[in-house]
Nucleic acid binder design. Structure first.
Lengths: 180, 180
DNA sequence: CCGAACATGTAACCTGTTACATGATTAC
DNA sequence: GTAATCATGTAACAGGTTACATGTTCGG
């Protein structure tokens, strides 16, 4: 993905924050954090995480010290430069406020183009999917660390707004069944 | 990026909708639509759009007929299969309701980890960026076709919610200046 | 001792990015 | 005629995906 002012990709920034703020201090734990994260975001594939960490080590942002005491694996921590780069990434206003690739936004104006039967079907399926996601988010909220909890809270607000949008679409759909 | 149930990437779906719903019926116009779109989403690079269209033609979803009358270029339209694939993509509930890679969400829990000076700075910059984007979105709303207008309306809601989030963060920040 | 979980990595592939190259048409 | 815009593409590269390969440690 494109590198922005902070010089980090979104994945690299996320990796740094996993190590520094969420205390996942081995490559494996970082990877598992992505895999088990309540959101899809990235698959947490080995082919993405390990190369990303290697790049960050080579760039001098991560310090990697092999664990000697029985355990295998390497302990990762951010260097001074790493912390600075992470903060730049966190604060980058252009990046932070861009819409990214929002799949809902892309489709927001397109449901109205469907014929009424298909549209009703789609809206029902979408509302159900959002509803299930909302239920999952609210029930798992307590088990999360502060960082992930904040993300979940944001997701709840987002999905609630999506649900509202879908209900508005349904209402408009009922008012004007088929615009042709 | 990953292909989902509809078999289309997000870019491919967006390309089909540009052709079918927004009447950008040459490769060049599709490309320009991405480039001049109020959102970043994709760069609309030639190296992405032309290959994507070629793939869609080869898959039998787009019909490409060279323009004979003076003009150069090819006229693009969706085949029967193309319309079906587009509708599947539009209605795919898993895709449509995923958070995608939301840069705001990724950072939502991280501003609180900054020291109070840096945090105040960051929040100010972010609120300004969101404010400017909101101003731009509201003033350009009238010039847009229905599809893009719906997207803009969604973006306005999203950015408004982001602004609210940032103001809440600022308030909490003021209440507890430095948590160490 | 054996299977599950821990741990690390590579190889082939796909798609998007930048940067470059090329030519046709139109407005002046 | 010439500059801007229209129009199409390719080449090198970056970074993410799946799938595979390999070895370690620990609980039973």
């Amino acid at each position: 993905m494109t590198r922005h002012s902070s010089g980090l990709t979104e994945l690299e920034g996320a990796v740094l924050s996993e190590i520094h703020h969420r205390l996942n201090r081995t490559a494996f734990k970082v990877r598992r954090a992505f895999q088990t994260s309540p959101s899809i975001e990235w698959s947490g594939s080995a082919g993405a995480v390990y190369p990303a960490i290697r790049r960050l080590v080579e760039a001098g942002l991560i310090e990697s010290t092999p664990i000697t005491t029985g355990k295998k694996g390497s302990h990762l921590s951010l260097t001074h430069d790493g912390v600075a780069a992470l903060e730049d990434w966190i604060c980058d206003p252009v990046r932070a406020t861009s819409v990214g690739v929002d799949p809902f936004r892309l489709r927001a104006g397109l449901w109205a183009t469907l014929d009424s039967a298909r549209r009703a079907d789609a809206l029902l399926g979408l509302k159900q999917a959002v509803g299930e996601e909302l239920a999952r988010l609210t029930t798992t909220l307590d088990d999360l660390d502060p960082v992930e909890r904040a993300r979940s809270r944001w997701s709840i607000q987002l999905q609630t707004m999506r649900l509202q949008w879908l209900e508005d679409q349904t209402a408009q759909s009922d008012a004007a069944p088929d615009s042709k």
